[in-house]
């Protein structure tokens, strides 16, 4: 090992070594994992056939991409047919009432991904908009904190899935309109996600705000800053790291909860895709579910990275090590 380093440094390549190391080590890990998977999977035979290995899963992924393209072509063709039909109708009678119908084909895997992302973002955003202000107020006032702390502690450990039936019932009772802006299933999923996002954000924001350095609070007192200026200029920047810790925790939980909620409630999204494939029970099902598992994981990772980038952008302390 040391010889290799020596020879590299003599050729002036020592800057490359750490880079190669950071690139190759994870790759080796992944390759070993894929190898074990490929060898082990065929040995487990289920009623739907043998468990697929990485190659089969990749084939399924390609299949899903093809399906998606096909569906898009069908949709384009449908819209074109409709346009032609409507144009003809108008040609005959300019006053004719033309109907424009939306394409109602089966949602593809990628449509489901999109639905899931949209739902999780909506729930997360609503939760953040509620939790951050409440967290700030609870962090500033010991009384408020003491008042809401028992509620937070009781609701925090409850799985949002336990709320799901209640939310479903409430949404179907309350959210009644002739031309709903959002679908009921979307509202139900988003609200379930919101419920699980509230607590980590709220607690971390409150703790972050409560732990602002005494010196900075004294500065604020000596300047007799107004409540608003105090919050905006001193409290928020100090608490940004803790707020983001809460947000990232929330987002991680939200993504997990969403998939489960979609499976349970048959709401559109990746969870429904997984459930449908499971019920479908074809020889492709296991492979397609595994594609979903990997995509869910990769998306969860990317979402967290996105939050990290946002944190780096918002945080004043650019030197802070974020991970």
């Amino acid at each position: 090992m040391s010889e290799r380093i020596d020879s590299a440094s003599t050729t002036g390549m020592d800057w490359l070594l750490p880079k190669i190391k950071t690139m190759t080590v994870p790759l080796i890990g992944i390759l070993i994992f894929l190898g074990i998977w490929q060898m082990g999977a065929p040995k487990i035979v289920t009623s739907l056939g043998a468990v697929p290995g990485p190659t089969q899963v990749f084939q399924q992924f390609v299949g899903l991409v093809d399906e998606h393209k096909e569906a898009r072509e069908k949709e384009a063709a449908f819209i074109k047919r409709q346009e032609v039909r409507n144009a003809k109708k108008l040609e005959k009678d300019p006053n004719a009432v033309v109907k424009i119908r939306a394409y109602t084909g089966k949602a593809t895997f990628f449509d489901q991904i999109w639905t899931s992302l949209l739902t999780v973002s909506a729930g997360f955003l609503i939760a953040s908009l509620i939790a951050i202000p409440i967290g700030i107020i609870a962090g500033l006032s010991q009384t408020v904190y003491t008042a809401i702390n028992p509620l937070i502690q009781v609701f925090k450990p409850v799985s949002p899935l336990a709320w799901l039936p209640i939310i479903t019932m409430i949404v179907s009772a309350v959210y009644v309109s002739d031309s709903p802006m959002f679908e009921k299933s979307f509202v139900t999923s988003a609200l379930t996600v919101m419920l699980c996002c509230l607590w980590p954000t709220m607690i971390n924001t409150a703790v972050g705000v409560a732990n602002i350095s005494q010196d900075l609070q004294n500065v604020s007192k000596v300047l007799r800053l107004s409540w608003w200026t105090h919050v905006v200029k001193i409290v928020l920047p100090s608490a940004v790291p803790m707020i983001f810790t809460g947000l990232r925790l929330s987002f991680g939980i939200a993504w997990m909860v969403l998939i489960a909620a979609e499976m349970l409630a048959q709401n559109p999204g990746l969870g429904k895709f997984v459930w449908d494939e499971f019920q479908n029970g074809s020889s492709n099902s296991l492979g397609r579910i595994m594609v979903a598992v990997i995509v869910i994981g990769v998306l969860g990772y990317l979402l967290d990275r996105g939050m990290l980038t946002l944190q780096k952008y918002v945080s004043w302390d650019k030197s802070q090590a974020l991970r």
């Binding site: 010196d215 900075l216 004294n218 007192k221 000596v222 300047l223 007799r224």
Partner: peptide
């Protein structure tokens, strides 16, 4: 109460 007519320079700059 504190006020800007009695400005403080804190030990650790603050």
């Amino acid at each position: 109460e504190p006020g800007p007519e009695r400005a403080v320079v804190f030990q650790n700059h603050s």
